[in-house]
Amino acid sequence: MTEQTILEQRSARSAFSLSGVTKDFGPVHAVRGIDLTVAPGEIVAFLGPNGAGKTTTIDMILGLSEPTTGEVSVLGVRPRQAIARGLVSAVMQTGGLLKDMTVRETVAYTASLFADTRPVDEVLDDAGIRAIADRKVGKCSGGEQQRLRFAMALLSDPALLLLDEPTTGMDVEGRRTFWSAIRADAERGRTVLFATHYLEEADQYADRIVLMSRGRIVADGTGAEIKALASGRTVRATLPDPDAAALTSLGGVDSVEVRGDSVIVHAKDSDAVARYLLTETTARDVEITAKGIEEAFLSLTGHDDEGETR
């Protein structure tokens, strides 16, 4: 089997795959070259700060925009073909509803556009919105509108479901119910890709986390693997002319940054760094802080600056 046919077979069997995908908006490089293949039934978290290119990538998977270069395939066909067959659905966080339609009209309208759909009443029941079926969408609460969006997305029994910040505004119980439903569907073979800012949510519910930053995938692995990246601490101290090489050679140091008289060290073993700074150097004002997710993003992407100027 040649490499080409293996690749073709893989994209045919995958829920979706992107190869060499870039997207420019004028001079802005929103996506700078992504290769990603997701298998059917996987629950994948798409993690990254705002402006990382998550939404742009999701839009290309949905066929709402075309990549500048590269190929996107969804269940072995082009994204628009997959959409036309009801194989792909998405739930966006806001908008996308008409206030002057009733809940039932919204679902019936959407259902009428597909060749095959589940019965409207059944979908309303499943989403828990049958009781408010005759209410105008504009009079529904945010939570009810979100349920309606899910009802619309599940009408065509999609093979791939894309979610944008799906549990924003849900309480703990709502979150748990939501994710157990998603997991049950995944076991039937439905693939779920959800965009999120929160490492915790990604870690709890995804089989796999894809971390995106500045238009690139900077990490791709299980929750435990990604979490390890964010588990380090930051040591900050006042120290003129630090010996960066000596700091870097300490065990578990991810990065060393010098800002004027300050030195900032990201490390898994912050104790060793602090001990070194206090015993071997003239460092003072030593601060140790846990690394947040934003810093984890930064530590994953901080050395990627050559990509910006290329």
């Binding site: 959409i83 009801g86 966006m92 908008g95 060749a115």
Partner: peptide
């Protein structure tokens, strides 16, 4: 403006 057209673009319409 309210994103309904975008929603419709996620259907076969």
């Amino acid at each position: 403006a309210v994103g309904w057209s975008r929603q419709l673009r996620l259907t076969p319409l």
